[in-house]
Design a binder for these strands. Structure first.
Lengths: 125, 125
DNA sequence: CAGGATCCCGCCAGATACTG
DNA sequence: CAGTATCTGGCGGGATCCTG
């Protein structure tokens, strides 16, 4: 019933590194960019900004830089005027996107249960 | 090649709700508590604090409250002295834990690739 | 034992203005 | 178009002290 490696069985230092990495990639914007690019394939900055609802230009830039640094994303600059920059996922990014897909699906499927749990919890004070 | 529901195909408002929910549950501490409790079954506060490396008492309390409110967690108070409080996952929590399992595994498997990607990126400045 | 309350600092993230 | 630069308020989160 526990096919995955368990927390206490691992080297604590390795564990901390894994947790740090998760802290990095498991945020709303990264997950959304992952989903959008997994679907669209390749997008430029402005299209990406449109496809990620609610993101500010600053956060998008930061997220993209971090993802590029982590090897999740490929950034291609076409030296033309006006500037043209393409973003697409690497194999690594795609694999993470697939891993996150389960979480995304979970959120969609169980959202109502969570909502009603919150209502019940708040009702009791 | 895209079996999952795609972002642009969904109701924007629903989408925002899903993203908010993800923003809530997809953090380091929640994921770790999920992993720990999925493994251990039931734990009391202090054991949990020991099992989640690096967590502060405040963050653990906050995380547990939020998880309880979202219906991921069951909190049982045994009216004895000294106080005895048990935490265990609900079915909903377990299902989220399974969804996150893929992300956790991804982080373990690909950590070295991410590290070297970072080194390469930082090297180029 | 399982937390609540409080203080405080850092950085996160939005808004705005500017540039190659 | 695709960003940088700067300022700023808010709050995330640690440390510490206290309590039923």
């Amino acid at each position: 019933m526990h096919p995955a490696p368990l927390l206490k069985d691992l080297d604590p230092r390795l564990n901390a590194l894994v947790m740090d990495l998760i802290g990095r990639v498991a945020d709303k914007w990264t997950m959304t960019v992952l989903e959008v690019l997994a679907e669209a394939g390749t997008l430029r900055f402005t299209r990406l900004a449109e496809a990620v609802p609610g993101v500010s230009q600053k956060m998008l830039t930061q997220t993209l830089r971090a993802m590029q640094r982590d090897g999740l994303l490929l950034r291609t600059v076409h030296p033309v005027v006006p500037p043209h920059v393409d973003y697409r996922l690497t194999d690594l990014g795609l694999s993470l996107g697939e891993a996150f897909c389960g979480v995304w699906t979970w959120a969609e499927v169980h959202m109502e249960r969570v909502e009603s749990a919150r209502t019940a919890f708040d009702g009791r004070g």
